[in-house]
Amino acid sequence: MVIYGLGIVAGCYFVGNFVGRFLGQLIGIGGNVGGVGLAMLLLVIVTARIQKKQGGFSEKTSKGIIFLSSIYIPVVVAMASKQNVLAAVEGGAVAFLAGGVATIGAMLLVPVISKLGSKVSVSGGDEA
């Protein structure tokens, strides 16, 4: 059933956010620390598990999950529509510069990383 798909994602969402909020309390900054990322990882693990056990979710269950990911862009559009954009525009340059420089810089680094990555000799970088 389609609702199973919605339920599986909701389950991952709750477990992830629970751990995320717990971590937040633990570190002492409060809030939700990476709950969404953890929930995503959990969904990947659950999916892999089900794949191994019974060859994946039924078509209808998977339709429920796909339904959610297909309304992700509309939800982001709604999120954009309720932001305080007026204030953002008034402080504008920072958004354009931060987004722009990060994008172009990262693109130029792509050939470097592909080379490094294939040589298997890299330790990574500082996590920030």
């Binding site: 994602v9 709950g35 929930a39 990882l41 969904l43 990911s69 992700y72």
Partner: peptide, 9 residues
Amino acid sequence: DYTIVSTAY
């Protein structure tokens, strides 16, 4: 967040 989690599928 709910819909983002689903994109990991």
